[in-house]
Amino acid sequence: MTHAAALVVALLLDAGMGGRALSWGRLPHPVVAMGNGVAWLDQRLNNGRRANGVAAVLILVAVAGTVGAVLGLVHPVVDIVVATVFLAQRSLVDHVRAVATGLQSGLAEGRDAVAMIVSRDTAQMARPAIARSAIESAAENLSDGVIAPAFWFLVAGLPGILIYKAVNTADSMIGYRTEKYESFGWAAARLDDLLNLIPARLTALMIAAVTGSLRAWPAIAHDARQHRSPNAGWPEAAMARALGVALAGPRSYDGEMRDLAWVNGAGRRETGAYDIRAAIGVLWQTWALATGLTLAIAVLAWLT
Results as ranks from 00 to 15, higher is better:
Met257Thr: 15
Leu197Gly: 12
Arg201Lys: 04
Val263His: 11
Thr203Tyr: 00
Gly233Thr: 09
Pro230Tyr: 04
Trp217His: 08
Asp193Ser: 00
Pro250Asn: 04
Ala273Tyr: 03
Trp262Tyr: 11
Glu236Ser: 06
Asp259Arg: 02
Asp254Val: 10
His227Met: 02
Leu197Ala: 12
Leu191Ile: 12
Val263Lys: 13
Met257Asp: 10
Leu260Glu: 06
Pro250Val: 04
Val263Glu: 02
Arg251Thr: 07
Gly265Asn: 02
Ala266Met: 14
Leu243Thr: 00
Leu191Arg: 02
Glu270Pro: 10
Pro218Lys: 13
Arg201His: 12
Arg215Asn: 15
Arg268Gly: 11
Ile220His: 05
Thr203His: 01
Glu270Lys: 14
Arg269Ser: 11
Asp193Arg: 06
Leu197Ser: 11
Ala261Thr: 06
Glu270Gly: 08
Gly267Leu: 08
Gly272Glu: 05
Leu191Lys: 07
Leu260Phe: 12
Leu202Asp: 02
Ala240Met: 08
Val245Asp: 09
Ala246Asp: 07
Asp259Tyr: 05
Trp234Asp: 05
Ala238Met: 09
Ala242Lys: 03
Asn196Ala: 08
Ala248Trp: 07
Asn196Met: 00
Val245Ala: 05
Leu195Arg: 05
Asn196Asp: 05
Ala204Ile: 01
Arg268Ile: 14
Asp275Ala: 11
Trp262Gly: 04
Asn231Pro: 01
Leu202Thr: 06
Ala248Gly: 02
Gly255Glu: 06
Arg201Met: 01
Ala242Phe: 01
Pro199Asp: 03
Tyr274Leu: 15
Ala248Pro: 03
Leu205Gln: 14
His227Cys: 06
Gly233Cys: 13
Thr211Ala: 13
Ala248Asp: 08
Leu195Trp: 03
Arg277Asn: 13
Gly267Phe: 04
Pro230Val: 04
Ala189Phe: 00
Ala238Lys: 01
Asp192Pro: 03
Arg225Ser: 12
Gly233Ser: 08
Pro250Met: 05
Val245Glu: 06
Ala237Asn: 09
Gly212Asn: 11
Thr211Asn: 13
Arg269Ala: 01
Pro218Val: 12
Gly255Cys: 13
Asp259Gln: 09
Ser229Asn: 10
Asp223Ser: 13
Gly255Ser: 08
Arg215Glu: 15
Glu236Met: 09
Glu256His: 11
Ser252Asp: 09
Val210Trp: 03
Ala189Asn: 02
Ala240Pro: 10
Ile220Trp: 05
Ala216Ser: 15
Ala237His: 07
Met257Trp: 10
Ser229Gly: 06
Asp275Asn: 13
Arg241Lys: 10
Tyr274Lys: 15
Leu247Lys: 02
Ala246Thr: 07
Trp262Asn: 01
His222Trp: 14
Leu191Asp: 02
Ser213Gln: 15
Trp234Gly: 05
Leu214Trp: 14
Ala219Thr: 11
